[in-house]
Design a protein around this nucleic acid. Structure first.
Lengths: 114, 114
DNA sequence: TCCATAATTCTATAATTATCGAATCATCGA
DNA sequence: TCGATGATTCGATAATTATAGAATTATGGA
């Protein structure tokens, strides 16, 4: 992960509705949630939420897939881990004290180690 | 850490010069760096850098201490850890897969476990 | 094909944030 | 107390980002 990507990710998360949506998706796991449910949960109008979900998607933090009429969004755990890693890189002068979360989804346990 | 604090921290980091400065300080360790050195390293005018350092300070990500004529800035590792923890909270549906970095500075090894 | 549902894109406006030179403040040494 | 150094604050301008209603696109069922 490079500086530009990281800034996009941080900027994407630095907004009330988007942070709430992202955390919701992080907690929702692999299954994800449809746009409408997210909008309702965070209390934002559909068009605003759509704008925010696009930002998160563009930042690579979440993914979108269509399922009938709904668009299901889900967190990209690898991107989240990459962000953490970038922030803590060479932490404390190179001792690499803790490499940050690499949260592999336990729902599809061991299926792939990407 | 709550939502408001987290957003302030993320917004603080979501800017080229501030991200560069923060990473510099994370790598610099406990000793920190004077404002002038940071400004020069990231290539920003003193007044701009001062503005950015104030934002990072206000977000609780870095601390300031005076040392003669210089103002020394250093990373707040606990705040960084708290930020990580908030983002990954209840990750993947409550399994708490990885608690994120809790980077205690190895420079003053074992001196206090705060 | 027509209607209803789910969601996005468009558009205009409001609000926030970044930039950086000039002026000011704080500290130190002579 | 004066001059020099390190850094912040002020202020005016530029640029970016958020908001949400209305219009539009995509899908599925009768």
């Amino acid at each position: 992960m490079d500086s530009t990507t990281t800034i996009r990710a941080l900027a994407a998360l630095a907004q009330e509705h988007r942070l709430a949506a992202f955390r919701l998706l992080v907690q929702a796991g692999e299954a994800g949630l449809p746009a409408g449910a997210i909008a309702e949960a965070v209390g934002a109008p559909a068009s605003s939420m759509s704008f925010h979900l696009a930002q998160l998607t563009h930042a690579g933090l979440i993914r979108q897939k269509r399922q009938s009429r709904s668009l299901i969004y889900s967190a990209d755990y690898a991107a989240m881990g990459g962000l953490m890693a970038y922030l803590t890189e060479n932490c404390c002068g190179g001792q690499s004290c803790a490499p940050a979360a690499s949260c592999e989804t336990p729902n599809k346990t061991e299926r792939n180690a990407a």
